[in-house]
C-alpha cells in the first residue's frame, strides 16, 4: 500500500490518495473492504455511507473476479481511493474482459421467489449505493470503474 499526500497549490483542500493492489481472489475482498472503510471514515462519511461504499466495492470486485477474469487467481484487483472535502472517489482497475454496463439488466423486484435471478443484482446495488459510477476500457489500461460517494448524500 502506498500513501502519498498531494497538496494542490490552487486548492485549499487536501486530497489524499492511497492505492491497494491484491490478487483477484475472493479472500482479497475483506482486505479491500477494510481499506475502503478506512478511507471512507477518513473522508468523513457517516456510517451508513461507509457501509454503502463497502458494499458497492465488494460487489464490484466480486463481479470483476467472476465476470471480467472468469474465476479466481487470473489477475489482480487494483483499488485507488482519494477524497476531497465533499466526496470520496474510488477507482477499481482490472485487466480482464471489458463489459457493457448497458447490457446488464436491473433485477426484477416484486416477483415470486422462484422467479428471482442473480444476474444484475451486484451492479444494481453499486448504482444505488454510490452517487456516480463511470466505466471505461482501453486495451492499455484495462477496465476502469470510477465510483463516487458524496458526503451528506442520502
Amino acid at each position: 500500500m502506498t500513501l502519498r499526500l498531494q497538496l494542490a497549490a490552487s486548492n485549499v483542500y487536501t486530497a489524499l490518495m492511497s492505492t491497494l493492489r491484491l490478487p483477484g481472489r475472493f479472500e482479497s475482498l475483506p482486505k479491500i473492504g477494510e481499506f475502503v472503510v478506512k478511507a471512507a471514515r477518513a473522508a468523513g462519511l457517516d456510517e451508513r455511507a461507509v457501509y454503502a461504499v463497502e458494499l458497492a466495492v465488494d460487489e464490484a470486485c466480486s463481479n470483476i473476479i467472476d465476470h471480467a477474469y472468469g474465476g479466481e487467481g487470473i489477475g489482480d484487483l487494483e483499488c485507488e481511493v482519494s477524497w476531497q472535502e465533499d466526496k470520496l472517489i474510488i477507482i477499481l482497475r482490472d485487466f480482464g474482459k471489458p463489459f457493457d454496463p448497458e447490457a446488464i439488466p436491473d433485477p426484477k423486484i416484486g416477483v415470486s421467489i422462484d422467479e428471482l435471478k442473480p444476474r444484475g443484482v451486484g451492479f444494481f446495488l453499486m448504482k444505488k449505493m454510490m452517487d456516480e459510477i463511470r466505466y471505461s476500457y482501453t486495451p492499455e489500461s484495462g477496465n476502469t470503474l470510477t465510483m463516487i460517494k458524496q458526503k451528506l448524500s442520502t
Partner: peptide
C-alpha cells in the same frame, strides 16, 4: 456485520428449499 449479494443468494436458495 456485512453481507453481500452472494450471501443473500444463499439465503434465497435456502428459503426456496425450506418452503
Amino acid at each position: 456485520t456485512f453481507m453481500s449479494s452472494k450471501g443473500w443468494w444463499v439465503l434465497i436458495e435456502t428459503q426456496k428449499k425450506c418452503k
